[in-house]
Design a protein around this nucleic acid. Sequence first.
DNA 1: AACCGATATATTGGATCCAATATCCACGCA
DNA 2: TGCGTGGATATTGGATCCAATATATCGGTT
Lengths: 233, 233
Amino acid sequence: MTQPPADLSSLIARNRPRYRTATEFVEAALREAILSGVLPGGLPLRQEELATAFGVSRMPVREALRQLEARALVEFHPHRGAVVVEISAEDSADIGAIRAALEPAALRLSLPHLTATDLDLAEELIAEMDAEADPGRMGELNRRFHMTLYARAGQPRLLALTEQHLAAADRYLRFQFAALGYHPRSQDEHGALLAACRRGDADAACALVVQHVALASEQLTAFLKDRPATPSA
Amino acid sequence: MTQPPADLSSLIARNRPRYRTATEFVEAALREAILSGVLPGGLPLRQEELATAFGVSRMPVREALRQLEARALVEFHPHRGAVVVEISAEDSADIGAIRAALEPAALRLSLPHLTATDLDLAEELIAEMDAEADPGRMGELNRRFHMTLYARAGQPRLLALTEQHLAAADRYLRFQFAALGYHPRSQDEHGALLAACRRGDADAACALVVQHVALASEQLTAFLKDRPATPSA
DNA sequence: AACCGATATATTGGATCCAATATCCACGCA
DNA sequence: TGCGTGGATATTGGATCCAATATATCGGTT
C-alpha cells in the first residue's frame, strides 16, 4: 500500500490481522505480490514454500491459489502446481482492448456524479506522479487516478473489473517504466482527461481515455515484441 | 451441454471422467448449476452436502467454491458459509453495462476474420432459437450465437470475459423468459446483426450489438424492479 | 411473559495425513 | 555414446481430523 514491497516476506508480516481468515490474507498478499512484480511471471509457486513463508498450512495457500487462478493471475497444471502467468505482447494487447472497452463505459457513468473533491484528488494524484520515481508506486498512483474518475459509476461489477484490469496493466507498465523510463506524454494525457472531466464533457473525456489506453498499449506491445524472451514482472 | 439439466444430481453423474481433478469437475458442475438456475440465488451451499452429492470429500468443494467466489457467482460469509449470489435489478444493469462495453469490442476485432462457415452457423443458431421453447436451452443457444460472432477476435482474455458475462446474463434472461415468454424483437435484432456482419459493416454491427444488449438489459431491469422480492434463478 | 445469558450443536476454517501423479536420475541396452 | 526403461523423490490432489466461530436452544431472572 505505502512501502516499497521489497520482497515477499515484507508483504507477509504486516497487516495479517486485517483479515478474518488466513485464506483471505494469503490471497490478498499473493495477488499484490504478483501484480507488483515481486513474484515474476513464470515463477512456479510451491505450496509448501508459501505455506511456511506465510506461517500457515498448505490449505489456505491452496484456496488462495484457486482464487488467483479464477482471476487469471496464476495457471494450474494438474499435479505439477501453479505458475505465475507470463506476460507477453499478446496478453498486453488483450488487456489493452479490455481496458479500452471498460474504462470509457465506467467514466461515462461516473462523470456526472463526480464531485469537486474527486477532481481535486485526481489533480493531486497527477502531481504526485510527477514527483514519483519508483515504478511500483507509480503504478499504484496511476491506478488510483483512473479509479478516482470512475468511482462514482456505482455498478460494483463494472468497477471491480475495471480495477482488476488496470492492476493487470500495471505489471506491464512497470516493466516498461523500468526499461524506458517514464513517458511524459502520458502525463499530458492525464491532464487533458482531467480537464475534460472538469468541463463535464463526457464525449471528449471518453475519447481521451480510449486514446490514452490505446497509445500506452500499442507502445507497450511494440516494446514487448522486440524483447519477447524476457521473463519478468 | 445438451440435455435439460433437470436437477443437481443429473449434472453430477455424467461427464465426471472428462475432468482430470475433482476440483475442476466440481467447479464446472457448480458453475453450470448456478448459471442454469438449478441452484437459485440466495441458496446456502453446505459443503458437506455438496461433497456427498458429488461423491468426494469437502476439500474439492471448498476449492471450487473459492473459484466461484472469485467469479462473483457465490459469496462467502466467514464461518457461515457460501451463498449463491442473488439476482437484482442493480446487478442486471451492472452486467448489461459490461456487456455493452465488451461485446462491440469483441465483435469489431472478430468481424474481419469471420468465415462463411461461422456466419452460416450463426444463422442456424437463430433458426434453432425460433424453434426452442425451453428457457435453459434458449439461453445456451443465445450465448452460442453471440460467441460465434466474437470467436475470431483472438484475445483470449476478452473472449473469456465476454462469455462469462453473457452467461451471467443468462440467469436473468431465463428469469424473464419464464415470466414473460420470449420477446420476438430480440430475434429481429439477431437477424439484423447477422446481416450487418455478412455485409462486413463493423460500425453498424457494433451499434446493433450495443442496442440489442441495452434494450434487453433495460427491459429486464424494469421487469425486476416491479417484482424485487422474488428469489430465484 | 419477555429478555438476557450460558450451553449445546452445526458448520466452517485450518492442520495433518495419505494416495496419486509427475519429474528426475541411474542403469542397462542397443 | 545415446536412448529408453525403471525406480526413487518431490509435489500436488484428496481425505480425515481438530479447532474456532456462529447459530440455536434452553434455562434463569426480572
